[in-house]
Design a protein around this nucleic acid. Structure first.
Lengths: 147, 147
DNA sequence: TCTCAAATAAGAATTATTATTAATTAAATG
DNA sequence: CATTTAATTAATAATAATTCTTATTTGAGA
């Protein structure tokens, strides 16, 4: 799932993105986060590996990745925008407690929704994308596992 | 659908919200918008009716309405937070072109999703609310109607 | 290696939102 | 109905996320 530097570089090349150290580091960092970081989290996360990068570059690079289809914006009721390196159709789980946003894969549910909407249509609206966000709380499985 | 001043006042009273002119004007304005205004849109919208209200009061009042369950925040990829006077379960249609956000009612679809998720569950997650956002474009029905 | 357009760092600027505080107002009470 | 008082508001300063500016640096091709 996590691309090597070489893979990233060729991916950039295909999309006409000039390959630079900040960009590859930022993209790699974004992919490593399992729960959708903000620009600042990425900025802080890469300080060990590449301390020179500026926050403005992080913002600009994330915008570029979104433009080129390598990332998606993820918004919440909170103030900061967050980013997702996955751009295929998937569901997001929002944890009210930890504020983590997690990917959730359920192709069946997605298919059910798409089938329903394609059959029924929406009067006066041409839809192109469906987003399903599920809010709740992470339930710690380990507690039960021990019992 | 749009409440009278008397109705709003008694609604406020029930919820322990002190009734003031700015609050009733802001709430009424929010209810009148059919496509989910930002705080600034409400601020501008009430200038004719009640010019004295400050933008800070609009923000504070909207937050209060959200806290008390009379409104919901609606977020987008854009910068501003928007508000929705409807707090029952419903779907949002996001128009990519006009940036309008519209309510869409489809209890059947909502039921299908809830039934599926209730039956299947989500491992490691207790969900409490499902949000469905549909992105696309408004299609102008009037063009076809004339032909 | 050299060239040069493109990208970056640093920090200033902008914009949405929140905090502060003195003045105003709504509601309760007499 | 007038008075009291705590809550609310207007005005504006402060904050925080994001974007812009510009001088410097860098990567890719010749």
């Amino acid at each position: 799932m996590i691309a090597t530097l070489t893979e990233i570089k060729s991916q950039f090349k295909e999309l006409g993105i000039k390959s630079t150290i900040p960009r590859t580091v930022i993209y790699q960092s974004l992919m490593k986060f399992e729960h959708h970081p903000s620009a600042e989290e990425i900025y802080l996360g890469i300080q060990k590996k590449y301390a020179g990068v500026s926050l403005a570059t992080v913002y600009k690079t994330l915008d570029l990745l979104v433009q080129k289809g390598l990332a998606h914006k993820v918004v919440t009721d909170e103030d900061k925008v967050r980013y997702d390196a996955r751009t295929d159709q998937h569901i997001h789980l929002y944890c009210n407690k930890t504020k983590k946003i997690m990917d959730y894969e359920d192709p069946t549910l997605e298919q059910i929704i798409m089938d329903y909407l394609n059959k029924k249509g929406i009067p006066g609206f041409n839809f192109s994308q469906i987003q399903v966000n599920i809010k709740g709380e992470i339930s710690n499985k380990k507690i039960n596992r021990k019992l």
